[in-house]
Amino acid sequence: MQPIAIRDVSLNYDTPGGKVQGVTNVSIDIDASEFVCIVGPSGCGKSTLLNIIAGFLTPATGQISIGGKPVTGHGMDRGVVFQDFAQLFPWRTALGNVSFGLEMKGVANPERDRIAREQLRLVKLEKFTNSFPHHLSGGMQQRVAIARALAYNPSVLLMDEPFAALDAMTRDDMQRLLADVWKETRKTVIYVTHNVAEAVYLADRVVVMSAHPGTVKTVMKIDLPRPRDPLSVEFLDCQKQLMAHLGHNTNGVAH
């Protein structure tokens, strides 16, 4: 599990309507095995930042290094989970999807199958190994996506609002499951969310971003013992604090 250093990263989008600020001068240091949430109002550049870390976008200025190695393009040291359920390959079963990265890595079959099944067990989908994605619920599809991103054993897991499209009850289950998975695998996780309670439940530290320009406003440490109780006084207190950080110039966009 690798530490991540993000230094003075900026990126603008060129659009027909002129330049749009993506992110401006973002610097964050993330420890190995740390769980970091990024929150902020819509359009402040959370996805942009995550895509830069994933290597899908190249920053105009600044550098990112993972475990001391500078990031250039995407690499197998990072696993990515998107918000959209459609990220899974519909022509592959759950097992086939999870096996994809291992196939690319050249892992041969008895071993590949074993690892993929192990990952599906981790996200509690061992009964659905041979189901195609369209026969799985949204939450199950996102669990397959998590298993898929973990299967080739990257040191960093990048997640962009993976549970945002789920109903509240399923989301609670998924957060609990993710906390368990993280405890077991000890990946370094960067997790983008809109949801304050989600950030407080999952994160070691929360990076609060502000819009115009999209940059880091504050970083808040969450020092609650795990597993966390969302109904405890301390939890609600943290939530209030985080809300205050966000509320300053967001007019309650966060919920």
Binding site: R78, G79, F82, A86, F89, W91, F100, G101, M104
Partner: peptide
């Protein structure tokens, strides 16, 4: 073909050849 599939495959280390046979062809099927 859904660009998300290409992104996901790229992130998992797919080269041009695998991208073609394992994503683009089935994706366009």
């Amino acid at each position: 073909v859904n660009p998300l599939w290409l992104r996901a495959a790229g992130a998992m280390g797919a080269d041009e050849n695998s991208l073609f046979w394992k994503v683009i062809i089935p994706g366009a099927s």
